Simulated assay, not measured.
Amino acid sequence: MKLLSKLTAAVLVMGALFFANTAKAQTTPANAFRLGLGIETGVPTGLARLGSTFTLGGTARLQYGISNDFAATFTVGGYHFFPKKIPGSDKRYGSYGEIPIKFGFKEFFVPNVYFGGEAGIAYEKLEEGWGPHRLDLSPGLGYANKTWDVSIRYENFSGADQPRFGMVGLRLAYGFGL
């Protein structure tokens, strides 16, 4: 929980700094495309925390402004779950990753602050090949201006007859208009 507290504090500090510098920035101009390239880190939850220490990855998010306060999103990328050591040995659990393909939205409820939601599919990449694909649901809260997008979210991976797991993630992205 200490790491989660630090991630939350970092998001709040970065959000305050960005808000102080660009309080009047319009982030989702209607009828305009934006592309955000982000780096992501997180803490595994559920079954994933038993064999993983943290996650690291990157995503590309295409955003289309439907109105000045609402945008549709399309996100692709990848997350790597770094394995823990197996107790009582020098070996580690198997390494794996998730490759998400998600559609979603961003709703700005005050200037620069948004609630977002995404749904899609995630393909599991194991050391020895491909694993199952899963439903990927991801609600989040973020701050965005004309250049930066910082968000925190919960990502849930689930499937029929498969164990559920996820991560609490932090995303820092650089965005620009197309």
Rank of each mutant, 00 (worst) to 15 (best):
K2C: 04
K2F: 07
T8D: 06
A10R: 08
A10D: 09
V11N: 00
V13Q: 13
M14N: 00
G15R: 06
L17D: 08
F18C: 11
F19M: 06
T22R: 15
A25D: 08
T28V: 00
N31C: 12
N31Q: 14
A32Q: 08
A32L: 05
R34I: 01
G36L: 02
G38E: 12
E40T: 10
T41Q: 06
G42E: 06
P44N: 10
P44R: 10
T45F: 04
G46P: 00
G46F: 04
L47Q: 10
A48Q: 11
A48N: 02
T53D: 04
T53I: 06
T53F: 02
F54W: 01
L56K: 00
G57P: 14
A60I: 08
Q63P: 01
Y64S: 01
G65R: 06
S67I: 04
S67D: 08
T75W: 00
V76I: 15
G78H: 13
G78N: 07
H80Y: 08
F81I: 02
F82S: 12
P83G: 09
K84V: 07
K84N: 13
P87R: 08
S89T: 14
S89P: 09
D90W: 06
S95Y: 00
S95E: 11
Y96H: 07
P100W: 06
P100D: 08
F105Y: 03
K106N: 10
K106T: 06
K106W: 05
K106L: 05
E107A: 15
V110M: 06
V110Q: 07
P111T: 05
N112Q: 13
N112R: 14
N112T: 01
F115P: 09
G116W: 04
G117E: 07
E118F: 05
G120S: 12
G120E: 05
G120I: 04
G120Q: 13
I121C: 11
I121Y: 10
Y123I: 15
Y123S: 13
E124N: 14
E124A: 10
L126W: 01
G129V: 12
H133W: 14
R134C: 07
L135E: 02
L135T: 06
S138P: 05
P139E: 07
G140L: 14
G140F: 12
G140D: 08
G140P: 06
G142H: 03
A144M: 07
K146C: 09
K146H: 14
T147H: 15
W148H: 14
V150C: 11
S151M: 11
Y154W: 05
E155I: 15
N156W: 02
S158L: 11
D161S: 13
P163Y: 04
M167E: 15
V168M: 01
L170H: 00
L170M: 12
L172P: 03
A173P: 03
A173S: 12
F176Y: 07
G177Q: 14
